[in-house]
Amino acid sequence: MFGRISKTKSLRVTSIIFSSTLQLGDCSYIDGTSHAIAVQRRSEILYKRDDQFSDYKIFSQPSIFPVISEQLQMRVNNLCPFIETGNIIINAMSTSSIATIGNVGHIRMTSRIHHTRLLDSNLKHATNPALNRK
């Protein structure tokens, strides 16, 4: 399928969380999906929140991908059979992200995030949250 070999001097990743993947080597298909409800709340205590993905429209809407309809005949000529890199340093990987060293056939990644802010109306500048930052 592919001819090129990836050569990496060193690879350092500090943390990988929430279904993220560090992949070394070839792979034929990658399909990654992440759904997140992010709640930013200006209070130390959270009593209860029963948020469901079904409460928000963004998670039920279909993904819009550019359709690959054209018949494509691809010819690859690898004059140099190597891809060379030096040191790779990644601090953090999160929420279904992928770092791959190697050849991949097809990749499809989806991300949905709903962001909510809860601010305190008792504070002085409640109407202008920008002035209210510590």
């Binding site: 990654g32 999160s94 992928i98 770092a99 097809h106």
Partner: peptide
């Protein structure tokens, strides 16, 4: 690298990101 992002060293045929 966050939220279904992709970091790739190598060759690829198709990529679809949403």
């Amino acid at each position: 690298v966050a939220a279904s992002s992709l970091f790739l060293i190598g060759d690829v045929q198709t990529v679809q990101l949403s």
